[in-house]
Simulated scan of single mutants.
Amino acid sequence: MIRTYIPRYRLVDSEAGRSHYVYVLEICHAGRVHKVEKRYSAFHSLYKQIRKHYPNSESEFPPKRIRNTTGKVLEARRAGLETWLSSAILIEPTPPQLLAFLQIHNYQPPSSSEGSGSSSDDSPAHQPLLLFTRDPFILNHNLQTPTLTNQVSKGVLTALYDQSFIMPV
């Protein structure tokens, strides 16, 4: 699964004296995150390619021309690009132009045979949790028999669970 975010944009000064904005993309894929910077023109070129090859994928793309470069206008464009990119990733099969744009190599789409008819996105992406059926601090506190011999553990448990505990200043 691929997830993309555009958390920010930044102004870049070029050698010719003309400045432009780039959008910082964070791409999460195969347990790794990498960052890529792209200009609006690169997004627009990708949009035209995808629209040509996948005409049924109609999603809103931010306009090319903007009146000014105030923070509010640039933030609206950033949010629009992020929304469009999120919808472009959902195209099946994933367009190779999009994978090249995101600099993802050797992409293996998730297999639909995993699980019992449900997609792999429905399952939790975390490791199993270790939990206690009874709270050892409360059990030991009520019995008044200290079985926790580790003083560090006892101090942490006291700070977390004892309502009368006051942190020394």
Results as ranks from 00 to 15, higher is better:
Glu75Lys: 11
Ser119Tyr: 08
Leu129Ala: 13
Thr70Arg: 15
Glu58Gln: 14
Asn56Ala: 13
Asn56Cys: 05
Tyr21Gly: 05
Leu90Glu: 12
Pro96Asp: 15
Phe101Gly: 12
Glu60Asp: 06
Leu131Gly: 14
Ala79Leu: 09
Val22Gln: 07
Lys72Cys: 06
Ser113Gln: 11
Ser57Trp: 04
Phe61Arg: 02
Phe61Leu: 01
Ile66Asn: 09
Lys64Phe: 04
Ser113Asp: 10
Ala100Tyr: 10
Arg78Pro: 00
Pro93Ala: 13
Ser112Phe: 06
Gln97Met: 10
Thr70Glu: 12
Ile89Leu: 04
Val36Ala: 11
His53Gln: 12
Val33Met: 14
Ser118Tyr: 08
Thr83Trp: 07
Pro62His: 04
Ile27Ala: 07
Leu90Ala: 13
Leu25Cys: 00
Gln103Asp: 13
Gln49Tyr: 03
Leu98Ala: 11
Arg65Asp: 02
Ala30His: 09
His105Met: 11
Ser118Ile: 02
Arg51Phe: 02
Leu129Thr: 14
Ser118Pro: 00
Ser45Pro: 00
Ile50His: 06
Tyr21Thr: 03
Ser111Ile: 04
Lys52Phe: 08
Ser112Cys: 11
Ala42Cys: 15
His20Pro: 00
Arg39His: 10
Cys28Lys: 13
Pro124Trp: 12
Asp122Ala: 13
Leu25Ser: 01
Leu81Gly: 05
Thr69Ser: 15
Ser59His: 07
Ser86Met: 05
Arg39Phe: 02
His34Pro: 01
Lys52Ser: 11
Ser45Lys: 10
Leu131Phe: 13
Ser59Val: 02
Leu129Val: 08
Val73Ile: 09
Tyr107Thr: 03
Cys28Ser: 13
Ser123Asp: 11
